[in-house]
């Protein structure tokens, strides 16, 4: 397949808490001949704090990035982070209203380009190029024997008309990808529940309680791992896993890898190119099980 290029917006967590998501995203896209061109001089989308404070401020921070992409001639921008995606898309859509556009332009150095590029998730970007069969054809080390659950969090599929991610309460794209990689993927009922988002710092019970519910179900379903696509969900379910367990009066030991890390393993990427060492709950047990599965299968 020939190489396709997309403009790429990594988002701030890619440079800090989710460096492993970033690493594995780049590795997987490299192996799949998808070229990611990082937007020059991109800035923070403002995340929850900006839109919680003011819609126009949030939009201005987002539109500056979309405008850079437009100047670069990009038609499509990929981003790994659902929160960035949601903010960038909301901003793009709101700019269609002339009064809103004028208010946002007032905040920018120069008025934004008339036509702003579309933004989509890395997951959907990959799926556009590779359907299930095409992905399976690229698999070198199938994830045979692994029992996985897919967890999307609340932002990836909502609001439905904006995010365009299938059924907003039952998206299935991640399941399709992991199945294409040879894993057994069970239907995870809390797949679009909220993990508690960014309340981990100001109000810990909010994240601890919501994350504990999700982890508890995953453990009870006998999952080897709960696979995620959002840096904030990953942090709440992995780094904060002990806090969640404490709030529920129990202990958990459940790996919470990014879907790109498992895709990378299946595509045969060396483990050191997938940032696996960044996971707080180690994937070692899962890796051994996958190898065993491959030998038996």
């Amino acid at each position: 397949m020939s190489v396709v290029s997309f403009a790429y917006y990594p988002g701030c967590s890619a440079k800090g808490s989710s460096a492993d998501y970033e690493r594995s995203t780049r590795t997987v896209c490299g192996l799949l001949d998808i070229c990611l061109e990082e937007l020059p001089g991109w800035n923070c989308c403002g995340s929850t704090p900006a839109h919680a404070v003011d819609t126009e401020l949030s939009a201005a921070l987002c539109v500056r990035n979309l405008d850079i992409a437009a100047q670069c001639g990009a038609k499509t921008v990929l981003t790994p982070c659902p929160s960035c995606l949601s903010n960038l898309r909301h901003a793009g859509r709101r700019m269609a209203t002339p009064e809103f556009r004028a208010r946002v332009n007032e905040l920018l150095d120069a008025p934004a380009a008339e036509t702003l590029p579309e933004v989509t998730s890395v997951m959907q970007g990959i799926a556009r190029q590779y359907d299930k069969a095409a992905l399976t054809a690229r698999v070198k080390k199938p994830l045979t024997g692994l029992r996985l659950g897919a967890y999307y969090g609340c932002l990836m599929s909502r609001p439905a008309d904006l995010m365009d991610f299938g059924d907003p309460e039952n998206p299935t794209l991640m399941e399709e990808m992991l199945t294409a990689c040879g894993a057994e993927v069970v239907d995870f009922p809390l797949k679009t529940s909220c993990c508690g988002a960014s309340f981990g710092i100001p109000e810990r019970p909010m994240t601890a309680r919501n994350s504990a519910k999700i982890l508890d179900l995953a453990v009870n379903m006998g999952l080897d791992a709960l696979v995620v696509a959002c840096p904030l969900c990953q942090m709440n379910l992995d780094l904060r896993q002990k806090q969640a367990a404490k709030s529920a009066g129990t202990t958990f030991d459940l790996p919470v890898p990014y879907f790109t890390q498992l895709l990378g393993l299946a595509l045969g990427a060396p483990t050191d190119q997938l940032g696996l060492d960044k996971l707080c709950v180690s994937l070692d047990g899962l890796l051994k099980k996958a190898e065993g599965g491959q030998q038996c299968g």
């Binding site: 609340c154 609001p159 309460e169 909220c194 508690g196 309340f199 109000e203």
Partner: peptide, 11 residues
């Protein structure tokens, strides 16, 4: 202030 902006209600 405690709302998580998760949009479950809207959905």
């Amino acid at each position: 202030w405690m709302c998580l902006s998760c949009s479950t209600c809207s959905l």
